[in-house]
Amino acid sequence: MKIFQIETTLNNDTFPAPFEFLQKREWEMSPKDRALLFATKKGLDKMPRRAARKIFQGIRAPFGLTSIQAGEVEAVHKVTTENVYRQHLVRVEGQTDIVTMGLPYLGPYNVNSIMNPILVACLGLGYYFNLYKGKPVVREGGVAIISHPTPWEFHPVHHPSYIDFFEEVLADTTDPEEIEKKYEKRYAEDEWYRHLYRTSYAYHGVHPFYMWYWCAHALEHLGQVIIIGGDPRAVRRMGFRSATTMRDALEMASDVVGSQPSITHIHNPPVLMADVV
């Protein structure tokens, strides 16, 4: 069989006007950008979560095409990967004791939906933690400090099995291997989840398992995960710890990495890939 593959790469232009200030590094913001940031922050703090979600999920990213590759599968993918590396790789010198990151409001599985705690873990520990080449940004046994409100909130139409996964499975254990052995088959073959998957707008019943497995490497590698601003109950359910401020989080992390840790912050947007040397 002859296969013809087309692959494209996009640039990092995530936010159109008037939100383009979100793409800038803080020290590059003009007074206008800072005023907009201040007003946006204050506005979002006062706004109901639903309205805030509607505004931000209504933003259409003005992505531009940076390359198109077509032809034989492996050859095409090689060129695409090179293009992605050229755009996303950021040189990072040495592993760190603590990695800090702020999570965006959007991941691949909550478009026009709610980012529930499992998706928060997946985005932070599955995506951002794993966006490295060579070795992780943080050393083995180090700490990841993530900033996200992590509300105990689920979209009942889109994520029905997530609710049960969170209430039943994670309440029992957070160990991916044990979860797989004990619960995966039951969720995968559950008739109700299958029915919702086929006839409604739900993700498959087994979907939250794979979101959780995605975090497995990070969970194995890290000594502790702290979520700043996270709902303490939801965060604790996943085996993480919640902190109120960055200062508190660093204080808590000192139990694991000592009082003089090195800290690396992954700034996003734009999405980047760490080339740890």
Binding site: E26, W27, M29, R34, A35, L37, F38
Partner: peptide, 10 residues
């Protein structure tokens, strides 16, 4: 503090 004041360049 930031954002009312400009952030220092690292």
């Amino acid at each position: 503090e930031f954002p009312l004041r400009a952030a220092p360049t690292p």
